[in-house]
């Protein structure tokens, strides 16, 4: 069975334990989550949770309908890749000295990444972009020695104007 990657946007009540409610459901049902992020919205009563998810159609329907049952969920939808923009932030620390610094900088430039910290034998690179772009960048760095990295997980938003509708289950 081929797993499809989807990005799901959930608008939830801004309460102290919304994340535990969401993650409890994910744990209980064994949903296959790649990333999860939470952030504020323009409405202080509402938090946005963005989930990167891999699954088939049935498991996607399950995660949507099960999440929708949570009292705290006001709206839930899949971000259509054709109508949305996705971004993720990468911070990656590479071993780099004068022997290979130039080569790494070349890759950094091609990807329009930024070097945000430099020492004698290492550097930290920042890159923002769609998750696939970050995957590609990291692949290019594969042949150099990486110390550690962190990725924020995907966040995404619909293009154009979209009304928030109060979610009804």
């Amino acid at each position: 069975m081929t797993l499809k990657k989807e990005v799901i946007s959930i608008l939830v009540d801004n309460q102290f334990n919304v994340l535990s409610r969401i993650s409890s459901l994910i744990g209980r049902r064994g949903f296959n989550i790649d990333t999860i992020t939470a952030s504020a919205t323009q409405n202080p009563d509402i938090t946005r949770i963005t989930i990167g998810f891999s699954g088939n159609e049935q498991s996607l329907a399950q995660i949507l309908t099960q999440m929708a049952k949570l009292e705290i969920v006001r709206e839930i939808y899949v971000l259509d890749p054709n109508e949305s923009v996705f971004r993720e932030l990468l911070l990656i620390k590479m071993k780099a000295d004068k022997s290979n610094r130039g080569a790494i900088i070349e890759i950094v430039d091609i990807y329009r990444a930024k070097i945000i910290d430099l020492s004698k034998d290492s550097m930290i690179i920042e890159l923002t972009g769609a998750p696939e772009k970050i995957d590609g960048f990291m692949k290019m760095l594969d042949c150099y020695e990486m110390v550690e990295f962190c990725r924020t997980g995907v966040t995404g938003i619909h293009r154009g104007v979209r009304e928030y509708t109060r979610f009804e289950d």
Partner: peptide
């Protein structure tokens, strides 16, 4: 009555 029951176990 529960949308999430549709196709949960049997399609």
């Amino acid at each position: 009555i529960d949308n999430s029951e549709i196709n949960k176990n049997v399609i």
